[in-house]
C-alpha cells in the first residue's frame, strides 16, 4: 500500500494539515483562560454565571455553536461566541474538559 496514492486522496489528506498550519492562533488553554474573568478561576464560578469546570467537551462545543448561531438566547455569550472559529471553539472545549 502507499506506492500509488491517487492525487485526490492525497489532497484531501493534506487539507487539514494546511488549514491548521495557516491558523496558528492561540492555544485552547490560552483562549480558555480568558473565560475565567467571568466564569471564575479554573472555570469555577461562585454565582449565577455557569461554572465551566466539569462540563463535557461536546456539551461546550454544542452550547458555543448554539450561541454563535443565535439558536440559544443569551445576554453576552452570543456576542462572545461569534469571536471564535469552530476550530477555536473545539480547542477551548478540549481544554475546559480537562478542568476538574
Amino acid at each position: 500500500m502507499g506506492i500509488r496514492v491517487p492525487a485526490m486522496v492525497l489532497a484531501v489528506w493534506l487539507l487539514p494539515l494546511q488549514v491548521s498550519a495557516q491558523a496558528t492562533g492561540p492555544s485552547g488553554q490560552a483562549m480558555a483562560q480568558t473565560c475565567y474573568v467571568c466564569h471564575g478561576p479554573a472555570g469555577k464560578s461562585d454565582g449565577p454565571i455557569a461554572s465551566l469546570a466539569g462540563l463535557p467537551r461536546d456539551h461546550i462545543v454544542r452550547q458555543m455553536a448554539d450561541f454563535k448561531a443565535d439558536r440559544r438566547p443569551g445576554t453576552i455569550m452570543n456576542r462572545i461566541a461569534k469571536g471564535y472559529s469552530d476550530e477555536q471553539i473545539a480547542a477551548i472545549a478540549d481544554f475546559i474538559a480537562t478542568l476538574k
Binding site: V37, C38, G47, I49
Partner: peptide, 14 residues
C-alpha cells in the same frame, strides 16, 4: 446586573 456582581467575584478571585 447579576452577572456584573458575579464578574467581580470571578475576576478578583482569579
Amino acid at each position: 446586573a447579576e452577572y456584573t456582581v458575579n464578574w467581580y467575584k470571578s475576576i478578583t478571585a482569579d
